[in-house]
Design a protein around this nucleic acid. Structure first.
Length: 423
RNA sequence: GGAGAGGUGUCUGAGUGGUCGAAAGAGCACGCCUGGAAAGUGUGUAUACUUCAAAAGGGUAUCGAGGGUUCGAAUCCCUCCCUCUCCGCCA
């Protein structure tokens, strides 16, 4: 959520930046400023009346103590209108504040100056491509067929016990999952991210904190009986660890990583693009999160991208890095890099990581602050990225490493899988 | 799920209608003291909104959340949430 004061002070710039994100309702900006004017006026009137009433109450107390009952009674009789005014103004104020909030949450974050203009994924900027394309055998199979051939994943069983999009991993398929999780966590820890293991369900306040609520309510599984949400990403619980917190400047940056399953309702299409592991309702992911000082958050963002690149390199997967264009970026992000691996058997790029700087967009809602050099509180920057999401990595490993004799496990994973071949 | 106790600032903890944004202690910060440190000692130490060109200063709100009673609420009443203890159930 953008701060009203920032919008007031930088109206032109806000409009210009929103245009990069193809924001459809620029009129909202002025509506917000006007509403805030109204809010301030009402606030001031309310404060003034309250001040009078407080002063009178104090005086009545003093008169009573001095035994001047009559004078106190006279004052008392005057308080009626103040009470009415306070009530009326209070109601007005909360109405205005609610209205203001409703409009404020409709504004997406402002994109960073490096964000390219554009509407669709085609407009994303390819920052770099790296890694050799694999040479596959002539009868190369897509991962869902490989998974069946080597008895690694049972999609039908998942359908039976839960539904589509909930695969059952078996045998070396299950072990490969665990190997990847441990490998990713170990690598994240080497990069300075300390591991946390967090709840997989969060309350409403946490959903609001990282802004899945109210806008993306439909994407989360909801446990109505207890009013809890299954997490769509570890970003939610990990970032909310720091909700309502005022940090010391020297505690920054805070670096956490964690593995969780992620649950997404993903009302989406069916067909080749969502076949197999391409899109699931439940999948595992290792997430990296940083709480950063605004002065160096973009440096840290680049470091996170490098970290993810390192993983893909070590796994020997060809990949590319995209800087998302305004139209393809998430609502709360100021700058997002997507990392994609090349799925040789499907002949397409698969998104395996998304690394974003949210600047103060989340921290404003989270009330996540630090005390700056002047001793004042200031909103921190929040960043997060997948490092990495498993299913598409599994898919590409299976596809790209297939040979006539089976699937070769990437070298870095062998210490974790304890086997070299899936055959 | 049943019974009971309780939610106060960074922490411990006092406060049962006005002088309470809140005692006291601890912690922390700065100063004095010291060769340096500890001890001692002094001062300071919440957040948000608002007023103000800015600073200083002022106003308002906040003692789990919301509502009510009252001229006045941390304190009384109602609703909700949460925590703890015991019992039950259980990995």
């Amino acid at each position: 959520m953008l701060q009203v004061n920032y919008i007031r002070d930088n109206r032109e710039q806000v409009l210009e930046r929103l245009a990069v994100k193809n924001f459809k309702q620029p009129a909202l900006v002025d509506e917000i400023i006007q509403l805030d004017d109204k809010r301030r006026q009402t606030q001031t009137s309310l404060d003034n009346v309250s001040a009078e009433a407080n002063a009178a109450a104090k005086q009545i107390g003093e008169l009573m103590r001095a035994g001047k009952k009559d004078e106190a009674e006279i004052l008392k009789s005057k308080t009626g209108t103040w009470k009415e005014d306070i009530k009326a103004l209070g109601e007005q104020l909360s109405t205005i504040e609610e209205e203001l909030y409703q409009k404020q949450v409709l504004l997406p974050n402002l994109p960073h100056s490096s964000v390219p203009k554009g509407l669709t994924p085609e407009d994303n900027e390819i920052v770099l491509e790296s890694g050799a394309m694999p040479h596959l055998p002539v009868n190369a199979l897509p991962h869902w067929e490989l998974a069946a051939k080597y008895n690694l994943i049972d999609f039908e069983l998942g359908v039976k016990i839960t539904g589509a999009g909930f695969p059952v991993y078996k045998n070396k398929g299950a072990k490969l999952q665990r190997a990847l999780i441990n490998y990713f966590i170990d690598e994240a820890e080497k990069a300075g991210f300390s591991e946390v293991s967090v709840p997989l369900m969060v309350n409403e306040a946490s959903g609001f904190g990282t802004s899945q609520l109210p806008d993306k309510e439909g994407q989360m599984y909801y446990v109505g009986l207890d009013n809890l949400y299954l997490i769509p990403t570890a970003e939610v619980p990990i970032t909310n660890l720091y909700r309502d917190v005022i940090l010391k400047a020297d505690e920054l940056p805070i670096k956490n990583c964690g593995h969780t399953p992620c649950f997404r309702r993903e009302a989406g299409s069916y067909g080749a693009h969502v076949r197999g592991l391409n899109r699931l309702h439940q999948f595992d992911k290792v997430e990296i999160v940083q709480i950063a000082h605004p002065d160096n958050s973009y440096e840290l963002l680049e470091q996170m991208v490098s970290h993810v690149q390192g993983l893909l390199k070590k796994l020997g997967l060809p990949y590319r890095v995209l800087r998302l264009c305004g139209g393809d970026m998430g609502f709360g992000s100021a700058l997002t890099y997507d990392l994609e691996t090349w799925s040789a058997a499907q002949q397409r790029w698969l998104e395996v990581s998304s690394v974003s700087n949210f600047e103060t967009f989340q921290s404003y809602r989270l009330k996540l602050r630090f005390r700056n050099a002047e001793g004042k509180t200031q909103f921190a920057h929040t960043l997060n990225g997948s490092a990495l999401a498993l299913p598409r990595i599994v898919a590409t490993i299976l596809e790209n490493y297939q040979t006539e004799n089976g699937i070769k496990v990437p070298e870095v994973l062998v210490p974790y899988t304890k086997f070299e071949w899936i055959d």
